[in-house]
Design a protein around this nucleic acid. Structure first.
Lengths: 192, 192
DNA sequence: GGGTGCATGTAATGGGTTACATGATTCT
DNA sequence: AGAATCATGTAACCCATTACATGCACCC
């Protein structure tokens, strides 16, 4: 709800534009689907927090351009003064890893590899966003955008370090398991 | 749903115990409320994935102890083979920071300070959990628990670094704003 | 000709939290 | 005396994603 108000302080936009902007620039810490954006804009308009102007287009559907009102800015202000509540994430990878002994080190290792690849791509995307912010250095919000982006960068770099560490740990566990099972088969002295 | 199955591989437990365990040991990457645990256990029992035994208690309500069945283990196995989907978090602090120019550096700075304090406490809690894992080093899952915990540690350390960096950035922004507004008031040459 | 992008919106569905209800015991 | 812990469960509610529906234009 308030994201929309916040983004509309940058410039008036349509619901579609807002969706674009969300997944292009703030996706790494916030997300909102169209199924939410459109109804929310409707509600905000009904409450007088935004106004709507329809732009006719040829060939394409009409664009509804929303602008934030004074009342909307006040609401945004109030919201900004409310202490943010930390949210507890659900990390399915970590959960599966937690039960890793039930699965196999290879399976889990594969998941970690995929995570590395995915986050590497995101890091590259971040570099692009950073250059975009640099282009808009004159905006008063730009330094804040940079700080928010920096969070993502630092966090992902940390994830990468963890992932590297983890693949080696998993390899070791794999070898150990191998050793143990082989020594069992051979009815060896090394058993534990 | 599958968390419950996973935790029940460690040992048979009641719904209450599961809730305890979730918020004591895997809270930093997974959460589940009682409003979900109890109905889910019911469904798992109905599907034959777990069995329930009632323990009578004096003074306290009966405990329903759930054990995972063979069928339940199979289900857990299948789930572990499914590639985990990354989830996009919602970080309210970052969102508010993103609109930081609309708020004030002090307000945002306060939020960052609170984050530092909160995460510092979590880091200490992690140290405790680590010692608990060390005590159960004989469990085959213990190394995996350690890896999952390590993720939290590395991530929080990264957050701390970001937060330190951010408070200094915000201070700078604050001074700058101060300078700009003062130079405007004095109709000075230094304006930009 | 078929997929993708623009552009809006609604409906169905699912997931999860909070609040409620109950009741004895134990700690402060 | 009152709060917290143990222990279970249901119901109300909120929020969010996904799917559906529409329709033109542009590109391959």
């Amino acid at each position: 709800m308030e994201v929309l108000l916040g983004l509309l302080t940058i410039e008036p936009m349509s619901g579609y534009d807002l969706g674009q902007m969300i997944r292009e620039s703030i996706h790494h810490f916030w997300n909102e689907s169209y199924g939410q954006i459109y109804p929310n804009l409707k509600m905000l308009a009904a409450g007088g927090f935004v106004t709507r102007k329809t732009q006719k287009q040829k060939g394409k559907p009409d664009r509804n351009i929303y602008s934030i009102t004074k009342k909307g800015r006040e609401r945004l202000q109030r919201w900004l003064q409310v202490e943010p509540q930390p949210e507890f994430p659900r990390n399915e990878l970590l959960l599966k890893l937690f039960f890793g002994a039930t699965a196999s080190p290879q399976t889990i290792g594969g998941y970690v590899d995929q995570m590395i690849a995915r986050e590497q791509a995101v890091l590259e995307r971040f570099a692009f966003i950073e250059s975009e912010i640099a282009k808009n250095a004159n905006y008063p919000d730009a330094p804040y955008w940079q700080i928010a982006l920096r969070f993502g960068q630092i966090e992902l770099e940390a994830h990468m370090r963890w992932a590297e560490e983890t693949v080696t740990s998993l390899r070791k566990l794999d070898k150990e398991r191998d050793r143990v099972s082989r020594s069992r088969k051979g009815k060896s002295h090394a058993g534990r």
